[in-house]
Design a protein around this nucleic acid. Structure first.
Length: 730
DNA sequence: AAGGATTGCTTTTTT
DNA sequence: AGCAATCCTT
């Protein structure tokens, strides 16, 4: 079996080969960043399928994001015989569990048409609970309660088992019980339920567990350090008999403990599987030595970790650039200007990622990029599926699927306004309570009773009849047609398009949602809604797009870029202030977060912090992150004397790294000059203007334009990239 | 019941 | 600063 010449083992180092060819059994691969973890996992699957004659349908590979799952499948498709990768189960924990629960709904005591509540839905539900139990929402904040409930679920505690030490615990236990009831009344599961319910199902029903043990005889898990108790228990349930569990982990990259992830699962694994075989992957294929040294210096300060000796065969490298900016605006300008300089040095915008701790930090960067005309792509933030208008339309669709979903019902019952206000809804709630049914059924009952005023009665009747009609149509119509019908029936388009720019862009979001539904015409509404609930924003990351990527450090896990900027390295921002008044472990996790960010960089790494930072609307001076003190001076480059920028006024102007910026290999061919002084041009965003100057610089044509709109003024563009055209009248 | 004004609160991080 | 919940007016 140790066939050194096997095609699957080509171009792999000895550590990787050993990890890939180990006989089935419990295996833990401990690996540093950039060590080809995912590659090893993928090759392991291919190895199992080709050498062990394992049938693909017995293999389950669990990844952290849908994107990782897609990439893994793509790679396997390329490596294996066409038919071999079919039947293979690859997916996230949540997606895998969602599928199991659909199939075994009856055994699990669930409605197979269940909907998935995202965090906004959870919050709505929790608010209803707090109201219903007559609690003061100032004292018992729905968010905090939700956190407590989530923690309990991740620990696999039922409401009855919730440990009560204080009066507050007592309330949490009550709230938890009622919240759970409410979810089930709505045929809903939240994210935690997706993990917890299979565990309970397998505990309660050995024959179902046995079925899945047979089904998933070979289980592989990526990013194992980020599993929580429920996930670990699930893995143990499935694998404790056949014991073919293969996990890949890096405790230094554990950044989700706030979500219940627990690196102690690595130790539990050693205890629960004494025959566990361990492998190390220490060679880094991603970063230069300098970047790796910097990252190592940061992470070495954490206690309670197994020191690793990471090495790379890419010696030297450019120094890590450390930049102090005056404020966040200047910091963003610095990033934008460096990106432009990088472009002149043959980097493309797609080579660059800008990372930060909190989503709110993206705003200044976006503005700077718009200003500098650099294409960018924002990951996270107000995520597409959580935008109000998108959630509204999804709520209609969810009602079509499951009219008893009270949360969706309450969200859209009066949207667009159809005269169903708080008083009416209170009556509906009372009726629902009385007849122990959903709001939808209660509303129908009230309409039938005829005790309401004519106007209210009409409004309610119109709405419930629409829902009923959609519900009946859902099986006949493809999702896209159902969506069109809903929009037509509710007049949602004219509600959104109120002749403002905001209204237009909201409508565009709906059109984008519609395009998603049109892509998969045969998809059932139920499965469409599941997919939508479980996509992450990183999943949408498309490498083909030539744009700078803006993302949080958390979303950056598992990705790599030639150039990485990490911004906002200030005390309170990167060790986030919330972690500072927390425990030591919380600060250690912040440190790991920086480590994860730094190790995303292949060639160049920029670290920056601002002297002033806007915080809750006011501006406050800040100190450089305490982590920066741990960087050895030799990894930090000495910037050359800053050249005066054109404006010149700003004494904080960014240093340039001059020569060092040149990307070693190929240079771009010289470009033809397209614009000349005095020429009339038009720009997609800024309108019309006149060229003041144009010259070739660093293989790019740099055009200076005075726009006729004096709010815009003078701007400079790279002719090759900017949406700038010679103006012609027609 | 709807829409506008005011207050007060919030931000980690995401499947 | 931005947003959601609440209050206030019509």
């Amino acid at each position: 079996m140790n066939n050194e010449n096997h095609p699957l083992l080509r171009e792999l180092n000895a550590q990787q080969r050993a990890a890939i060819t180990v006989p089935p059994g419990p295996v833990l691969v401990l690996a540093g960043p950039g060590s080809g973890k995912t590659r090893v996992l993928t090759h392991r699957v291919a190895w199992l399928l080709s050498m062990e004659l394992v049938p693909p349908w017995q293999v389950l590979a669990v990844t952290f994001t849908n994107k990782a799952a897609r990439e893994m499948r793509k790679r396997l498709d390329g490596m294996l015989e066409r038919t071999a990768s079919r039947g293979l189960s690859i997916g996230t924990f949540h997606a895998t569990c969602a599928r199991i629960l659909r199939r075994e709904a009856e055994w699990a005591g669930l409605d197979s048409d269940y909907v998935i509540f995202d965090s906004a839905d959870q919050l709505s539900a929790m608010k209803l609970v707090v109201k219903e139990l007559g609690l003061d929402d100032k004292r018992y904040r729905p968010r905090a309660l939700l956190g407590a409930v989530s923690r309990a679920k991740n620990e696999l505690l039922l409401p009855a088992d919730y440990p009560v030490h204080t009066y507050y615990d007592e309330i949490v236990a009550r709230v938890y019980r009622r919240y759970q009831e409410m979810l089930r009344e709505n045929s809903a599961l939240d994210f935690d339920d997706l993990l917890v319910e299979p565990v309970r199902l397998f505990r309660a029903t050995p024959e179902v567990l046995e079925k899945y043990r047979q089904r998933f005889r070979y289980i592989l898990v990526d990013e194992f350090q980020d599993t929580n108790m429920a996930q670990y228990t699930l893995l143990r349930q499935l694998s404790q008999e056949h014991r073919s569990l293969y996990v890949v982990a890096d405790e230094d990259q554990s950044i989700y403990s706030w979500r219940g992830a627990d690196t102690r699962n690595i130790h539990r694994l050693r205890e629960d599987y004494p025959e566990l075989q361990e492998f190390l992957l220490e060679e880094n294929y991603r970063s230069t030595q300098v970047i790796l040294n910097g990252a190592q210096a940061i992470i070495a300060h954490n206690l309670e970790r197994t020191p690793k000796s990471l090495f790379t065969r890419r010696p030297g490298g450019l120094p890590i650039a450390l930049h102090e900016a005056y404020d966040e605006e200047e910091e963003a300008d610095f990033v934008a200007r460096e990106v432009q300089a990088l472009q002149r040095a043959n980097y493309t915008p797609g080579d660059v990622a800008v990372m930060y701790r909190t989503n709110a930090q993206s705003r200044a960067l976006e503005e700077a990029f718009v200003h500098a005309n650099i294409p960018y792509r924002l990951i996270g933030g107000t995520r597409f599926y959580s935008r109000k208008e998108v959630k509204d339309v999804l709520a209609f669709l969810r009602l079509a699927q499951n009219p008893d979903d009270n949360v969706s019902f309450l969200r859209v019952v009066n949207l667009p306004a159809r005269g169903i206000g708080a008083r009416t809804l209170a009556k509906v709630a009372a009726q629902a309570e009385a007849q122990q049914s959903s709001r939808y059924r209660a509303a129908m009952a009230l309409v039938a009773q005829g005790t309401l005023s004519r106007r209210t009665r009409n409004a309610l009747q119109v709405f419930t009849e629409l829902v009923t009609a959609w519900h009946e149509a859902r099986e006949q119509l493809p999702v896209v047609q159902l969506l069109d019908r809903i929009i037509a029936d509710t007049g949602y388009e004219s509600y959104l398009r109120d002749n403002t720019d905001v209204g237009e862009s909201r409508w565009e979001n709906i059109l984008a949602l519609r395009a998603v539904t049109a892509e998969a015409p045969e998809l059932l509404l139920r499965d469409f809604l599941t997919d939508v609930a479980l996509v992450a924003d990183v999943d949408e990351l498309d490498e083909r797009v030539e744009a700078v990527t803006l993302l949080t450090l958390h979303s950056a896990k598992g990705l790599e870029y030639p150039v990485v900027f990490i911004t906002g390295l200030e005390d309170g921002m990167l060790p986030h202030s919330r972690s500072l008044d927390d425990s030591l472990q919380a600060v250690a996790e912040e440190r790991r977060l920086l480590y994860v960010g730094m190790t995303r960089a292949k060639e160049r790494l920029y670290l920056s912090y601002a002297f002033l930072r806007h915080w809750y609307g006011n501006t406050e001076p800040s100190l450089p992150s305490r982590f920066l003190a741990d960087l050895p001076p030799e990894v930090l480059g000495q910037p050359s004397k800053p050249k005066r920028s054109v404006q010149g006024a700003n004494h904080w102007s960014a240093p340039r790294w001059g020569q060092a910026l040149q990307r070693q290999p190929e240079r771009r061919p010289a470009v033809q000059q397209r614009f000349h002084r005095g020429q009339h041009v038009s720009h997609r965003r800024f309108g019309e203007g006149a060229v003041q100057d144009s010259q070739i610089e660093g293989g790019e044509e740099l055009v200076t334009v005075l726009f006729f709109d004096n709010r815009v003024g003078v701007k400079q563009f790279l002719a090759g990239l900017a949406p700038l055209e010679p103006f012609s009248k027609h």
